[in-house]
Design a protein around this nucleic acid. Sequence first.
RNA 1: CGGGGCGUAGCGCAGUUUGGUAGCGCGCUUGGUUCGGGACCAAGAGGCCGCGGGUUCAAAUCCCGCCGCUCCGACCA
Length: 493
Amino acid sequence: MEQKGSSTGKGRGRDKEFVREITPQAVDYSQWYIDVVLKTELMDYAPVKGCMAIRPYGYAIWEKMQELLNRRFKETGHQNAYFPLFIPQELLQKEAEHVEGFAPEVALVTQGGGEKLSEPLVVRPTSEAIICDFYSRWIQSWRDLPLLINQWCNVVRWEKVTRPFLRTSEFLWQEGHTCHRTEEEAEAETLKMLGVYQDFLEKEMAIPVIAGRKSERERFAGALRTYTVEGLMRDGRALQAGTSHNLGQHFARVFDITYLDQDDSLKHVWQTSWGVSTRLIGALIMVHGDDRGLILPPRIAPLQAVMVPIISRNARDEVLAAARRLAEMLQGAGIRLKLDDREGYTPGWKFNEWEMKGVPLRIELGPRDLAAEQVVLVRRDSGAKETVPWAELPRRLPLLLEELQEDLYRRALEYMQERTRSGGDYDEFLQVMERERGFFVASWCGREECELKAKEESKATIRCIPFDREMEQKNCIVCGRKAAEVVYFARAY
RNA sequence: CGGGGCGUAGCGCAGUUUGGUAGCGCGCUUGGUUCGGGACCAAGAGGCCGCGGGUUCAAAUCCCGCCGCUCCGACCA
C-alpha cells in the first residue's frame, strides 16, 4: 500500500490506539473496508442477510450524488419518473436472455393478504420489463420520441455473497430508460450517458475511470451492447462503476413497443438503459480512503469543513463567539461547514473523529488565533497546515477545497496509471494478477474460449474494451492467434 | 453453493478445557475539574451468554439441530 501505517506516520504513541480501531489496509484490506463503513457510521447491518441501513452520513453522500447526477440528467433532457416495485413474473419472462440472466437472483412474492397469489410477483432486480410494458402504451407516434426517462429507486437481487455498498441484496440506484427512432440515435444516447458517468466520476468523485465496451460475455442480459466505466480500487481490484446499455430492438420486439413513423410505416423503437448505484459509495471509500478512515472529495462531501474551537478557561466565551460568527459567515458563503462546539470532547478527540469521517478540511480556532484574528486550516489528505487571516477565509477556503479536489483526482489517477501494465506475455499476466494486480492491458483474439481460460487461470476478467487505446501487440495474449481487440484485464469486485 | 473463523452489555473481549447462576476495557448517564492531537476524578445505568431442543439437582460452559455475521473461492451494479 502506498499509504504507510498510521503508527509510523507521525510518530505519536496514540496512533497505536487508532490502529486498533480501524484495521490498516496493508494488514487486511477487506477488514479495513468493513471497519471504515461501520465506524464512520455510513451504514449498519440489517437483521436480513445482505441488507443494511444507510445511516444519515452515508445517505448524505448519496443525496449529494443524486443532486449532481440529476443536474446532468436534466441538462441532457431527461425527466424523472417512478415505476412499480412489483413485476408480474410473466413480464420478466418475455425477453428470453433477460430472464435467464436475472432469474437466479430474483425475490418472488407468492402471497399477499394472507392468500396465495394467482401469479407470483417479482421484486424488481432491474426495471426494463415493467417499464417496457408501460412504454408500449405510451408510445404511438414518431412525435413521442425520443422518450427520455430516469428513475431513482431500490432494486433487489438475491446475492450469495454480500458486502456493504459493493454488493447488497437490496440497493439504491438510478436507471435511465430511453426510446429512440433510430439505431444511431440510441447508440449516441448510450455513449452520451456513459460520458455523463465518466464526467461525474472524474469531476465530482475524483475517481478516474477507464471507459469502454463490455465483452460479449459480460454484456447485460438482453442488451445489444454494454458500455462501462471501470475504476481501480486501492487493493488493485477493479470495480464496475457504471454501465450504459444499447438495448437495440430486443425489448421493443417482445414488448411490442412500436411507433408510426413519418413515412406511415410501423416501426420498433431503439432503446437504451443505464445505471449507477450506491456501489459508488464503496468506490469512493476504496479509491480515496487511508488508514485513518475516509477521505471525501470536497464536491461530494456532505461536510466540506469542520471548525473545532479550542477553548480555555479564560478565553471560553470569546473563542466560541468568534467561532460562531466565522462559521455563520462561511456557511453564508456557500461552504458546507459544521461548527463542532460540543462540550465534553477534547479538541484532539474531535480532530480524530472528523479525520476518520473524511471531512476535507479542518479549521482550528483557539485563544492564540483569536488574538491574531486568524485560523489554522488543516487538510485531511496531506495533513498540511496553514494559518489564514479571518478576512481571507471566504477567498482561501473555496480555493483550497478545489486544490484538494484536484489533488485527490491526480493521486488516484497516478495510482491507476502505476497499476496499469501493458505488454508482456501470458506468464507475466498471470504473475501480475497474482501479485500486485491492477489493470493489465493486452491484445485478445475475441474468442470466449481465451477469455474463460484467462479467467480460470488468473481470476481476472475482461473489464472492458477501451475506446481509445492503440493495439501494441498483434497477437492474442492467451492463444497467440491474430488479435482483434485490445482489452483491460483485472480482478474485479 | 464449497472451505475457514466468530456469535457473552452499544463496541472490543475474558470466562467454556474441569457445569455451581456473569466479568474487564472502551463507550453511555449525572456532577465536577479540563480543553492547540483521542483528558481526569467520583457516582451510576446497562445481559433471554445467537435461537431451539436435550443431559443434569444445576448449563454461557456438555450433546444434537438451526440461524446469523465475516473471510477465501464460482455469479452480479
